[in-house]
């Protein structure tokens, strides 16, 4: 998939003008929109949605931050300001189902917006993709990653925060990869170091950076690919691989990218 090639992505406002309502809102998130590495993941997932001819749309320029980093950093005022404005926007478009590629966005929509009046069916792209592969809606080339050694880094906001540990593993198994687990995995996985607002600041003084500790643990499994499912984890693990001078022989891919690649997108 070339980054320059233009991807046809339906926009909520355009559909509304035509009086159409998509089944899903694809929530891209700030990282999907602005982080150069995660833009590719947004593209990969949108290409799969297109491939499946899913009825979906994105908010485009109307999308804003969910407020998650503000809430975790103690700025409840700003969080609720963002949240209440977004809920108004979702109401205007009568949004019912939201697919997220960011676990932090997933968590706030799923667990924290209902108390503020925003009730939606919130789905992680992992659940969506697992179902799509299982039901045969997409048929990835199962030889593409056959036997490739992959370790999966669990994002905190999926595994611990929301008890989602199996969908990414099932997808990897369906792709016939050689899945190897890190010592700390699933609910006991070590954080990448970027949650709770850390993504946006320097870490406090210590003996070591958290992302290096986690990357070293991943490298111990001697993988060809470290798979992740979170934009922040992606940034941290990629930095870790660079720090350890391993970015040449260990690749860091998001689950959506692996499927897109196996689909030939």
């Amino acid at each position: 998939m070339s980054a320059k090639e233009r991807l046809d992505v339906p926009i909520m406002a355009d559909l509304a003008e035509k009086g159409e309502k998509p089944d899903y809102l694809f929530w891209v998130g700030c990282a999907g929109a602005f982080d150069d590495r995660y833009k590719k993941v947004a593209r990969a997932f949108a290409s799969i949605l297109n491939h499946m001819q899913t009825s979906y749309a994105v908010l485009g320029t109307e999308e804003t931050c969910t407020g998650d980093p503000a809430r975790r950093a103690g700025n409840e005022m700003l969080f609720q300001m963002q949240a209440l404005q977004l809920i108004e926007l979702f109401d205007a478009y009568e949004v019912k189902k939201i697919i997220t590629i960011c676990p932090h966005c997933y968590n706030v929509f799923k667990n924290e917006y209902p108390e503020l009046g925003g009730n939606y069916e919130v789905i992680t792209y992992l659940d969506f993709l697992e179902e799509a592969v299982l039901s045969g809606k997409i048929n990835p080339d199962l030889t593409r990653f056959e036997g490739v050694k992959v370790t999966f880094h669990d994002p905190c906001y999926l595994a611990r925060a929301n008890n989602i540990t199996e969908p990414p593993r099932k997808i990897l198994q369906m792709l016939s990869v050689n899945l190897v687990e890190m010592e700390r995995n699933k609910h006991l996985a070590l954080c990448c170091g970027a949650g709770g607002g850390q993504m946006f600041k320097e870490a406090e003084k210590g003996e070591k950076e958290i992302f290096i500790e986690r990357t070293e643990e991943a490298i111990k499994t001697d993988p060809a690919i470290i798979a992740t499912a979170c934009p922040f984890c992606m940034v941290m693990i990629t930095d870790g691989l660079k720090y350890k001078n391993r970015e040449e022989n260990i690749k860091n891919y998001d689950i959506a990218e692996l499927i897109a690649l196996a689909l030939g997108n």
């Binding site: 999907g32 485009g60 700003l78």
Partner: peptide, 24 residues
């Protein structure tokens, strides 16, 4: 980060007009 969120709706200093750049 807070001011970015207040001013341009994202934790980073990017313009909301660029939110679709990822589509190419």
């Amino acid at each position: 980060t807070f001011s970015n969120m207040e001013n341009n709706g994202a934790p980073w200093q990017f313009s909301n007009e660029d939110r679709l750049q990822w589509t190419g």
